[in-house]
Write a protein that binds this DNA or RNA. Structure first.
Length: 414
RNA sequence: GCGAUCGUAGCUCAGCUGGUUAGAGCAUCGGUUUGUGGUACCGAGGGUCGGGGGUUCAAGUCCCCUCGAUCGCCCCA
């Protein structure tokens, strides 16, 4: 623990059962993503700093104090991605994906945020991400939400998880509502916490979901967005909720749910669990119709979500441990060489097989047992001379002689 | 960035109000069994008690600093 170089704060070495859980989450995502027709894309881990600062919002905490920004040797300002969405919109423009709209894409990998680490919160962490670009239909929002719901279901973590849904309206709605909120909170200035006084300047919507009890009276009496929704914005939200009902996805309206990043419009949602303490948000996203434009592109409506792999992995049950089918136990140099050939044959036939690099028979049998293999193939000079091997069932202890030529078949039959 | 708790072997932990060479279980390695594992028994390795400084005759134990983890806030997936 104290010897040698230390792991950097907020990073993690993932191995053993934890790695299996992590991999199981990614595998489920890849499986479900195909069912919904989302294309797999790979994105760079860093972008020009402006890609994030212009889209996420200069005043957000993510941009103003959480980004890993550095100057490269050519003097350009680069930033390790703190999320996927901005980079995907950049790619949408650089790669000419306008041609392909509406485009459904999915990716996963590391993202970086300079935050104080906690359980389920790291400086280098991993996200799943799904986006639909160039679609203004509420059906796109619905498809993404049904996708998310199925993913959580297949991971077996819907227990205690609820989908909270809200609308932030279109640009017109959001501006009007925002002004009303600012006016309301200005008149309650004296009742607000210090944190919320700061939010009043930077991000007044954020006061609505404040946890500080001092803020609750003013937040609870604040005007709902519903009164400010334009007919269009209201119709849009109604179609989203109707679509969820049609697909059989449970949701609850949370009129106090807002998003931290500036680019969100219309649909905003979070799948929240009560099992992860303060890190309760497990998958979240919404519609960001203004983002591509903010990057200098044409008006491009889009929706998406991201989910923290570490948080999903903590909630998901442990997957079945990785085991092999058969272990080889050779005795003597000649047998070992023959076993190397046999090992390759078994693996080429799709059978998970393993053989230790050294050890006497007892050691090798212990290893075979510990590996979880159901069978062992024992190969010594006697067997080799007869063109046979001993096939042992490690559970029952039963052992039989099998001709080498029929060994692959015999193993497969068990 | 703010507040709080914690930090003893690979893992889980014990170590009373400071007192001789820091312990246990599990795991690892070796042996009882030179071609047969899972059980049992015997044995071994592994710790600068997170790191640094201080108080004291004496510090794993008390004080300060530092690093890290955890919980809450902030923020967010």
């Amino acid at each position: 623990m104290s010897k040698g170089p230390q792991r950097i704060r907020g990073t993690q070495d993932i191995w053993g059962e934890e790695a299996d859980r992590f991999q199981a989450v990614v595998a489920a995502f890849e499986r479900v993503r195909r069912l919904y027709g989302f294309q797999r894309i790979e994105m760079p881990a860093f972008e020009a700093t402006a890609v994030f600062s212009r889209s996420i919002g200069e005043t957000t905490d993510v941009v103003s104090k959480e980004m890993y920004t550095f100057e490269d040797r050519g003097g350009d300002s680069l930033t390790l991605r703190p999320e996927f969405t901005a980079g995907i919109c950049r790619a949408f423009l650089s790669e000419g994906w306008q041609q392909l709209a509406p485009l459904k894409v999915a990716t996963h990998g590391s993202v970086f945020r300079y935050e104080r680490p906690q359980k389920g919160r790291y400086r280098q962490f991993h996200q799943l991400d799904a986006e639909i670009l160039g679609a203004d239909s509420p059906a796109a929002d619905v498809e993404l939400l049904v996708f998310a719901d199925q993913l959580l279901n297949e991971l077996g973590i819907t227990d205690g998880v609820t989908l909270q849904l809200n609308t932030l309206g279109d640009a017109e709605t959001r501006d009007a509502w925002r002004s009303a909120l600012v006016a309301h909170f200005e008149s309650h200035r004296d009742d607000l916490s210090e944190d919320s006084l700061a939010r009043l300047d930077k991000n007044p919507l954020r006061i609505l979901d404040s946890k500080d009890p001092r803020d609750r009276p003013a937040a609870d009496s604040a005007p709902d967005i519903d009164a400010y929704l334009t007919d269009q914005a209201r119709a849009f939200f109604d179609k989203v909720t109707a679509g969820l009902d049609a697909a059989g996805v449970a949701w609850t309206r949370n009129a106090r749910l807002v998003r931290g990043l500036d680019y969100y419009r219309h649909t905003a949602f979070e799948f929240v669990t009560d099992r992860l303490g303060a890190q309760g948000t497990v998958l979240a996203g919404g519609r960001y119709d203004g983002l591509v434009e903010a990057l200098g592109g044409p008006h491009t409506p889009a929706v998406g979500w991201a989910a923290g792999i570490e948080r999903l992995a903590m909630l998901a049950g442990a997957p079945a441990p990785n085991t092999i089918d058969v272990a080889l136990v050779p005795m003597g140099d000649a047998a070992e060489m023959a076993a190397i050939g046999l090992l390759a044959q078994l693996r080429r036939a799709g059978i998970a097989a393993d053989m230790g690099y050294k050890g006497n028979m007892k050691k090798r049998m212990q290893r075979a047992n510990a590996s979880g293999a159901r069978q062992a193939i024992i190969l010594g000079d006697d067997e080799l001379a007869r063109g046979e091997a001993a096939l042992k069932d490690l559970e029952s202890g039963a052992q039989q002689s099998v001709p080498l030529s029929g060994l692959v078949e015999a193993v497969r039959r068990q």
